[in-house]
Simulated scan of single mutants.
Amino acid sequence: MTRWPLALWLLLSGAGASAIAQPYNAETTYRKLVAAYPDIRIASSTVPASVQVRKDIVYARRGELSLALDLYSPGPRDQAAPLVLLVHGGGWRSGDRGEMAPLAARLAARGYAAATVSYRLSGQARYPAAIDDVRDALQWLRAHPEVHGADVDRMVLAGGSAGGQIAALAGMTSDGAVKAVINIDGLSDFTSEEARRHEDDPAKNPSAAGAWFGGRYAEQPALWHQASPINHVSRASPPVLFIVSSMPRFSVGREAMMAKLREHGVVAETVALPGTPHSFWLFDPWVTPTVDAMTDFLGRVFGALPASE
């Protein structure tokens, strides 16, 4: 099957020129939000001198396409730190790993190793390619501890929006390799009525999810079901933290998934940030409370981090 360049694919698929002109990133999202939230600022990804950053590390190749990640390593510590792999959003068809740099920088400043990852977007390869890519990034990190120095037995998947759904799905199906999942304003159930109202809207030709799955729910029901993290919950699932905005449509399925996790005795928590828009993790003043929620949760999962040397 021919894989078109992303911009050409969006045009041919009916997504239109506006989708091409408005990629998902902090700058374009800021322009959409600033009128309603005049005090927001694009979050800085500046790191303290103790944090080492290594960029453009290729973890996999798909033909001529190289998939890369950026590593944020904390300063020397008495014990190897947990590693958080951060998955960016963008409706499965836009965005890049740079969106997650502010979170990665702040996590590393607090003693956690972090990595931001690229994956194939829907215009490059449909579902489940993105899931396969994130799994391969996890495998690469597990196989190369000498590169990052983190504890490969304490790996975490986290992501925002579409990245939250990807992180949750990959985490629920990791066979124990992922020890915690953090889903930031991402879907848990594509098949619920509320999710399909937005993601299966016939006026969207195609919707973001429809483009990823290669068809509407009636055409690809098995894929819509398979890609829903809620359908993979078991007693072996890792603990899950949901961090949500004031816009519940983006985290549809969360309450049902939490109930299912708890039925299996798995820790499931929610931190809600009142008055926040979707994509809040890209901006101040919400980056700090987002990182607070993440590190508080990881502290309960793994215990307090040892002091730096």
Rank of each mutant, 00 (worst) to 15 (best):
R3S: 14
P5E: 15
P5C: 09
W9L: 14
L11T: 12
L12V: 12
A19P: 08
Q22I: 13
Q22E: 14
E27F: 07
T29G: 07
Y30A: 10
I40E: 11
I40L: 14
I42W: 08
A43T: 00
A43S: 09
S45W: 00
V47G: 06
A49M: 10
A49K: 10
I57L: 07
V58F: 13
R62Y: 15
G63C: 08
L65A: 15
A68P: 11
A68K: 12
D70S: 07
D70P: 04
D70I: 11
A80P: 09
V87D: 04
E99C: 06
A104T: 01
A108K: 04
A109F: 02
Y112G: 02
A114R: 01
Y119G: 09
Y119W: 08
R120T: 05
R120K: 12
A125H: 12
A125M: 07
R126G: 15
A129S: 08
A130L: 04
D132V: 06
V134R: 08
R142S: 10
H144Y: 14
H148F: 03
G149Y: 03
A150L: 08
A150H: 10
L157I: 07
A162N: 07
G164T: 06
G164C: 11
L169G: 05
G171L: 09
M172F: 05
S174G: 07
S174D: 11
K179M: 05
I182W: 02
R196L: 14
E199S: 14
P202F: 10
P202E: 08
Q220R: 14
A222Y: 00
W224F: 13
S251R: 11
S251W: 12
V252T: 13
V252F: 02
A256I: 02
R262I: 00
T276S: 00
P277M: 01
H278L: 12
W281G: 13
A293T: 01
G299M: 02
V301H: 09
A304I: 07
A304P: 10
